[in-house]
Design a protein around this nucleic acid. Structure first.
Lengths: 238, 238
DNA sequence: ACCCCACCTTGACCAAAGTCAAGTGCTGTA
DNA sequence: TACAGCACTTGACTTTGGTCAAGGTGGGGT
């Protein structure tokens, strides 16, 4: 029994780690040798809902790659208000900016729900990036996408009001075509308020404003988009 | 004469380009062969104050590396208000995110003053990044730094008021040590207002508020920091 | 089925900041 | 030197949105 456990703890999990790493934006299709090494040096971590992953200002000893669930990256104001930067889902890396620049984490992160991630120690990651240009290219793509996202968040916060931001957010959740459809917010409205940069009360008013205009109707987390054109107009000029 | 001109246009400038590329964050210390190729495929461009470099939404055919002067990257609201994302100085790349992701420029850019840049066509850059891991690493460092900057801009816009943002901005311009010192804004106050995410009127009031508190005194673009501790307090909790 | 608690909504209020308008001062130019 | 134009400031006003307080609602657990 003793021996069997050894094998299970030391070996089976590692093979399994390789297979989950392969389903990751950063590492899929990567040379098996590299995956093996990552698996050997990385660790699988489990988080329950609301559990902290790391805190802003902490030294970054490694990064996480989400396997299951969602991890919210956010900033806190002294008064306790929160601004969500981004919610990361399966396949996405969290904390890689801090690891790359060698500085402390620039924001905090916590699990939104039961989640799993691979933890990769700083040096293991840096070794891989330096040795494997393909990983560097994927990272560049990931960081570029994030910069784009941040730039548009900055634009929203600075130049658009809450209803416009909400309308734009709903449109980004909506599928391309249909004028009328039902979208799932995937988070509570309180969490949504932190993502669009406001408080629950104001978000609620923005929703009822859009509802009064006839653009949407809400039932809990489900939002019925009644008139996409109207919603598009609410997101823009005004 | 004809021949001389040929040489001057076709060759001298290229040698010169190599030498300026060497003074660039992204390319310094790079293999001479690569620099030659960049120089062959790139072009030097000159901008006068307020001249557009590119517009948001335009297809990104290449990127720029600032040699001299400053280039402002910004977003415009439908109503004409502007949010500065970042002002880029000598050595820094502009537009590389669009080139990397193959999507349109996510923001507009224009010269703040007489400026010079190297224009590098998309494919020349991608070739180099793919072939030269060192360039990819530098890019990762640059993008990481920018993400960090953006994250803190998002935090500021969402969670702090204008005086706090102004105080923080002044502190970032100030040198580390001294409690009392004079800093140069390096831009007009109107431009500063776009950088901290407000309008000139509000910025002006924020300045007089800080002045009333005894933290600073302003004389045009020169700001006399009279009490750094006071300024730090104004930047924070409040 | 009931109850509890967290989430959400609404109203009243207030503070922050954008807009509009007027006026001052500085600078570069004719 | 005088003028034009721009940057900046200040005041009055309005709008937006955050805060506080009070209910309503709904889903999960016992």
């Amino acid at each position: 029994m003793e021996g069997l456990h050894e094998i299970h703890r030391g070996h089976r999990p590692r093979l399994e780690l390789v297979s989950v790493l392969q389903r990751t934006d950063l590492f899929e299709g990567l040379d098996h040798r590299h995956l093996e090494e990552l698996a050997a040096r990385g660790r699988r971590k489990h988080f329950v809902a609301e559990q902290a992953v790391f805190f802003e200002g902490e030294r970054a000893e490694g990064l996480y790659v989400v396997l299951r669930g969602r991890i919210k990256v956010f900033k806190l104001s002294p008064k306790g208000r929160e601004q969500t930067l981004k919610i990361m889902g399966p396949g996405e890396p969290v904390g890689e900016v801090a690891v790359l620049s060698g500085e402390p984490y620039p924001a905090s992160a916590e699990a939104l729900e039961t989640s799993e991630a691979v933890y990769i120690p700083r040096q293991a990651f840096l070794d891989l990036v330096a040795r494997e240009p393909e990983v560097a290219m994927r990272l560049l793509a990931a960081l570029s996408a994030r910069l784009r996202f941040f730039a548009s968040l900055i634009e929203d916060l600075s130049l658009r009001d809450v209803s416009q931001r909400l309308a734009a957010h709903l449109l980004s959740l909506a599928s391309a075509g249909d004028s009328e459809q039902i979208v799932d917010l995937e988070v509570t409205k309180t969490q949504l308020s932190a993502a669009v940069g406001t408080v629950p009360e104001t978000l609620s008013r923005a929703f009822s404003q859009l509802a009064r205009a006839g653009a949407v109707e809400t039932q809990g987390r489900r939002v019925h988009i009644k008139d996409r054109t109207l919603l598009e107009r609410a997101a823009q000029v005004k």
